[in-house]
């Protein structure tokens, strides 16, 4: 059985940290206020709005030490990553999860944070949350159903999402643990001990700013690494800001995905609201879900 960290209650503390790219303190204010309005205490790490002049929010050791401290601090009940970018892979192998194993807590984020979500699933058998991060709270985003879906997830309310049908969907029903994240990171984890074990599970993927040929290549990496063969179902989120070359690739995202999974029989759905855009529902990684893809709708229900 997968370990499910305790859900939060009024007065619980959420640690806010940037384990990857740099983020200004101003950009997290709305997030902090909203979390406080939800009834939580917020502990803001020094990596947020740090003095770093580089891409990263701090040196590898500064980011690692802060994450380690938040993992080990029993007064912190969940860790929300401020943003992604790139950087978790540089220090994840230096983390000590021994205290976390005894006292698991929710680790929350997406994009580069996919490295944590996959590692927690495969190496630590612990559930986590793929969801909007601090920036999503800005510009009125805190009122959106997407940020609010995080609030519900933290409270332990079971999710039951419906999404619009798509003529390219492959109809069917599947149940299994929900896993997934950013496609570039899922490909990047192949061959490492953090890669998801995908057999019998429902996989979701999303990405941003990639060339179509590279999306094809990364998706084929998952296939050739055996990660697609025995899925229970596949949820394709939004692929935004896609790039193409002057010599066009000649296939759309649904076309290339359907070609590569043509030999498998599980349900597949497209344009599910998980993405780098506002449409990014909180998804509990590692928790059993029911995926139902019909002509009329997509339903993803936490069991």
């Amino acid at each position: 059985m997968i370990k499910v960290p305790p859900y939060l209650s009024k007065g619980s503390t959420i640690g806010l940290t940037c384990p990857a790219g740099y983020m200004e303190l101003d950009k997290v204010q709305n997030c902090i206020h909203t979390l406080q309005n939800w009834g939580y205490e917020v502990m803001v790490g020094k990596t947020i709005g740090s003095k770093s002049k580089t891409y990263f929010s701090g040196t590898d050791s500064a980011r690692r030490d802060e994450f380690q401290a938040m993992l080990d601090d029993k007064n912190i009940h969940a860790i929300l990553c401020g943003r992604g970018g790139y950087g978790v892979s540089r220090f994840i192998d230096q983390l000590d999860f021994s205290t976390f194993k005894k006292h698991p807590k929710w680790i929350i984020g997406f994009s580069d944070i996919t490295v944590f979500l996959a590692h927690l699933h495969t190496q630590l058998n612990t559930a986590s949350i793929h969801s909007p991060m601090a920036n999503a709270f800005n510009e009125g985003g805190h009122k959106s159903i997407y940020v609010q879906s995080l609030q519900k997830a933290l409270k332990g309310i079971k999710s039951n999402y419906t999404a619009a049908p798509n003529s390219k969907n492959k109809i069917g029903k599947a149940s299994g643990q929900l896993i997934g994240g950013n496609l570039a990171l899922l490909a990047h984890l192949c061959g490492t001990k953090s890669a998801y074990k995908t057999n019998g599970k429902i996989l979701f993927i999303e990405d941003i700013g990639e060339y179509i040929y590279n999306i094809d290549r990364m998706f084929l990496q998952l296939k050739r690494a055996g990660h697609l063969k025995k899925l229970a179902g596949l949820i394709v989120g939004k692929f935004t800001e896609i790039k193409d070359n002057p010599r066009p690739f000649g296939q759309t995202i649904p076309e290339l995905i359907l070609q590569h999974v043509a030999e498998y029989n599980y349900p597949v759905c497209f344009e599910f609201p998980v993405s780098h855009e506002k449409e990014n529902l909180a998804l509990k990684v590692g928790i059993e879900h029911l995926l139902s893809v019909s002509k009329k709708a997509i339903q993803l229900k936490e069991l």
């Binding site: 061959g191 490492t192 084929l220 050739r224 690494a225």
Partner: peptide
């Protein structure tokens, strides 16, 4: 990297590895 996890991924133990690339960002 794309071969990692697949049957085509080279076992590099005891070998001399060369790498090159073009048009990638540093990160």
């Amino acid at each position: 990297e794309n071969m990692s996890g697949s049957i085509s991924s080279i076992n590099t133990d005891g070998k001399i590895l060369f790498v090159e690339d073009v048009s990638e960002p540093l990160y």
